[in-house]
Amino acid sequence: MEEVIKISVTAGAAVLCAAVLKRSVPELALLVGVAAGALILLELSGAVGPLAELLAGLSAASGLEQEVLAPVWKAVGTAAVTRVTAELCRDAKEGGVAAFVELAGSLLALVLAAPLILAVFEGIGGLM
């Protein structure tokens, strides 16, 4: 609960500062946004621990190997970084760059999924 309040306060303050700076120095407004995002992620790092433990427990119970789950975590990270980057580009009125970032993110996610697809069809072949 406290983390959510801290994050909300940080985000609110960053938005106000960015709104003021945008009229005179738009580049600084963008940097304020990036800094606020970094602070929010830093605040989240404490909450991620219990979630990571839960996911580790579930993956152990399900019998899925780490080699299967490693591409998944990478894909989640890729999707997050792609989204944040694309939104920052749109904030900077660079819609074109945002589109390229999103395309790159989708292609990289497919590349990360390729070993999983192969593993699924090997599993199906094993059933036959």
Partner: peptide, 19 residues
């Protein structure tokens, strides 16, 4: 994070269940 464009979570599910 921004959407599961490659259907990765579904692939992991199918993999786990077939295993």
């Amino acid at each position: 994070a921004g959407g599961d464009t490659a259907g990765i979570s579904r692939l992991v599910g199918v993999l786990g269940i077939t295993a």
